[in-house]
Write a protein that binds this DNA or RNA. Sequence first.
DNA 1: ATCAATCTACGAAAATTTTCGTAATAAAAT
DNA 2: ATTTTATTACGAAAATTTTCGTAGATTGAT
Lengths: 128, 128
Amino acid sequence: MEKQINIKPTESELEILQILWALGKATVRQVNEELSKTKEVGYTTTLKLMQIMFEKQLVSRTDEGRYHVYEAAVGEEPTQHMLLDKFIGTTFRGSATRMVMQALGNQQVSKEELDEIKKLIDSIEKGQ
Amino acid sequence: MEKQINIKPTESELEILQILWALGKATVRQVNEELSKTKEVGYTTTLKLMQIMFEKQLVSRTDEGRYHVYEAAVGEEPTQHMLLDKFIGTTFRGSATRMVMQALGNQQVSKEELDEIKKLIDSIEKGQ
DNA sequence: ATCAATCTACGAAAATTTTCGTAATAAAAT
DNA sequence: ATTTTATTACGAAAATTTTCGTAGATTGAT
């Protein structure tokens, strides 16, 4: 079971979570190297953020030799779900439909993906 | 035409924009009253925020008598679109499809809405 | 053994966002 | 006319988030 799924990570924390979700386990250095691909960021900055995330229980860590190996302590899906809910609430006044329609209309979504979504809708409709 | 659609409003600013989009025009007091329905917030706090938003050109205002009447200076749709793009980028690693599928799976979406979305998909597929 | 390199901890500075107190001004009420 | 009320402007405090410098500890190299 997920623990604290109510804690909303900040923007920077989310970036780090993304990396951890992708890598599974990672040291601060590894995370920092990933971050550096996108933007300028000092090692100690990343370290501090991950320490804060550890306090918030967003990540866990184990002592491996003399350094720490970090891991996300919150799941990707539950976190996305929570953020999505909040986002729909604040930006689309709670209407998931409005948001979906904008997303489909504005984003580049391939025919294959659209079909996939249609299938999903069908299965939901059958289910309820 | 929209002006600065790149300025990302903060959370609080977005709340105010929502109210202005709903009301059209409004004074600081009106906006503050709307905000107060949801949360505790002082009048001068709202005022200050709206002044900052005026500087950022997120809102415009006209002198009506001795007070200001405010209006959103950015459109609801373009703003939502911009925020949605950023959100998909940071939270769903750029995949609109993944986000839509989560939204449809997790949120409460009625059959009517699902049908509406299906219709939209069909029309997009015909278009391209 | 000494030096260099690497990692963590800690604290604080910097930047951003949010909140609010105070003063000035103008209108409205008494 | 004086007082009360409502509005804006301004600045700064408070809170949150981000960044980074420094110190201490441990490993590895010379």
